[in-house]
Nucleic acid binder design. Structure first.
Length: 544
DNA sequence: CGTACGAGCGCG
DNA sequence: AAAGCGCGCTCGTACG
């Protein structure tokens, strides 16, 4: 229950990077309101702030993140409440304190508080609002999603500070390789297309900057158009880095991965050009997104979001986490090979197997899915892969998810139980405008019904994705409470550090047991098996 | 020069 | 007829 001593806190900070980041932001004023107190207090430092583990706030991921940095103490000790997390799990459209105060307290706060009522009053107003809002939202809460989220917040602060160590030698080697691949593709490409010519660019020319009134050649360029707007065009051979020039060269509407894959498998100069573009894109993506930004850094850390911010930036609608600056959830294998545990530690990582499919089966009760997934010798992704893609499991997996969430005639035939559930769920979402996730979490996601078909697919996708991630979240909470040193979460995978002189097989078994036990609790019919690996680097041969 | 936006792509 | 969902980051492109 809520301890009567819970302290409402709200910190005012400055953001040297421009974007709020509790790992580096500077505390300007700490404000707090003791329960039952008549007036809020504030201080420019943390010294007078009561040192209690019972805290309440609006977005405590941020304030506790600051507090922990300035006044370190074990994050496991905190028992926090967060009106932002409450509002998020309840499917509120407007997560801002101001909006919630208007809606539930019927209090209109000033739009420009700092100019009109001064910083002290504005600060006190927010503290007062949070204190009054909390019991109202808490009373409305159904399901356990909020209790999992609030318990997870300290764990995610921990993760946001920890990160991986970057191996500079491996990174430099990887850069060398990718740069070579890039320039090889680039030179071969430019030789290949040297004598072709396409429209390179077309830019609007304003009337006063027209070259006299000429139409036709203008330097190397051409001026076209006869109306009030004219364009200056240039021509030449396409650049390997220019999507629009390549569209003209290949004469297609899009030069994405699928198109390149199909064309590269054929014969002739255009097939070779497609192949070179493939090589270049892959290497360039690695360099620009993964390698160069981390060059010279000794750590890769990310800022985890459990909800969107007050202005609905970041976070995920389905209950998933997100990570930014850096994104820890989309690292490429080539980068994973450069990421390692700090000296004296190893990385332990547990992956749930087919957790989202298992969730879909449990939610819908579809007999075919349940029996297929209950048989450890069957693999639905592999079955689809064998049927359609010559055993390519990755493509089989893509196919399964596509069909499932399109949820059309194919699924009605293959998985009638799932289809029936989806129809019922979609009707309910259309009636209420909200998708309510599965028991016992009851996470609510607002669905914008104007989205047409997209809305239907969002609605059908939400419960399975939500169930999968709350199982992972619940497992993280248990691991965190059991003292595991968490590093990262990638939707259905959890990473932790262990001392390198630890009993690795034992630790792997303990990790697996906590994750599998959690899955059994929420997926009573199927459970979900967990593969646990341990190594110095994220991507490396498993130890033992 | 800075800004906005869509496309593309990394991961689940 | 055609159609997954969920993220964050970077680029090219166009414009003022």
């Amino acid at each position: 229950m809520v301890p009567t001593s819970s302290l409402v806190i709200d910190f005012e900070t400055s953001t040297p990077t421009g974007k709020p980041d509790f790992r580096v932001d500077v505390l300007e004023r700490a404000g707090w309101l003791e329960s039952g107190a008549e007036v809020a207090k504030w201080s420019s430092c943390l010294c007078p702030l009561p040192n209690t583990p019972y805290l309440t706030g609006h977005n405590l991921m941020y304030d506790l993140g600051i507090l922990w940095r300035l006044r370190p103490s074990p994050l496991q000790r905190y028992d926090i409440h967060d009106t932002l997390a409450l509002a998020y799990g309840q499917g509120e459209e407007d997560l801002s304190l101001k909006g919630l105060m208007q809606k539930y307290l019927k209090v209109n706060t000033d739009t420009f508080p700092y100019q009109r009522i001064g910083v002290e009053q504005a600060h006190g107003q927010d503290l007062w609002g949070t204190q009054r809002l909390f019991p109202i939202l808490r009373e409305r809460q159904r399901g356990t999603c909020y209790d999992i989220d609030r318990a997870l917040i300290p764990a995610l602060i921990d993760c946001s500070y920890r990160g991986y160590e970057i191996d500079p030698e491996r990174l430099e080697k990887a850069i060398e390789k990718a740069e070579a691949s890039c320039s090889r593709a680039e030179t071969a490409f430019s030789t290949l297309v040297a004598d072709t010519s396409v429209l390179l660019s077309r830019r609007k020319v304003t009337r006063k900057r027209w070259p006299e009134d000429t139409i036709g050649l203008y330097g190397d360029d051409v001026v076209v158009g006869d109306g009030p707007t004219r364009y200056r065009e240039s021509y030449g051979s396409p650049g390997i880095n220019s999507p629009i020039q390549l569209q003209r060269y290949f004469d297609v509407p899009s030069v994405d991965k699928i198109f390149l894959q199909l064309l590269a498998a054929k014969e002739g100069p255009k097939a070779l050009a497609a192949f070179l573009r493939q090589q270049w894109v892959a290497a360039d993506k690695l360099l620009d997104t993964y390698f160069y930004p981390n060059r010279g850094k000794d750590q890769l850390t990310g800022l985890f979001n459990i909800t969107p911010t007050e202005d609905m930036e970041g976070g995920a609608g389905t209950g998933r986490l997100s990570s930014e600056r850096s994104n820890m959830q989309n690292q490429a294998p080539a980068m994973e090979r450069c990421l390692r545990a700090p000296k004296g530690f190893l990385i332990l990582r547990g992956d749930y197997s087919q957790i989202e499919l298992r969730g879909s089966a449990e939610i819908s009760g579809d007999e075919g899915m349940l029996t297929a997934l209950a048989d450890p010798n069957r693999d639905l992704h592999q079955e689809a892969a064998d049927r359609f893609f010559g055993g390519n499991r990755k493509r089989g997996k893509v196919f399964n998810f596509r069909e499932l969430y399109i949820c059309g005639p194919e699924v009605k035939v293959a998985y009638p139980g799932f289809y029936a559930w989806a129809e019922r769920h979609w009707l309910e979402v259309q009636r209420t405008g909200v998708s309510v996730g599965p028991e016992p979490f009851l996470h609510r996601r607002p669905i914008p019904l104007l989205g047409g078909d997209h809305a239907r697919r969002q609605a059908i996708n939400h419960p399975p994705q939500n169930l999968a991630v709350y199982i992972t979240k619940a497992a993280m909470v248990r691991l965190f409470r059991a003292g595991w040193m968490l590093v990262n979460q990638v939707h259905d995978a959890i990473h932790a550090y262990i001392p390198e002189d630890d009993n690795v097989p034992l630790r792997k078994a303990q990790f697996r047991e906590i994750m599998e036990e959690t899955a059994r609790e929420y997926l009573p019919r199927l459970g979900a098996s967990v593969e646990v690996k341990c190594s110095k680097y994220w991507s490396e041969e498993d130890l033992l």
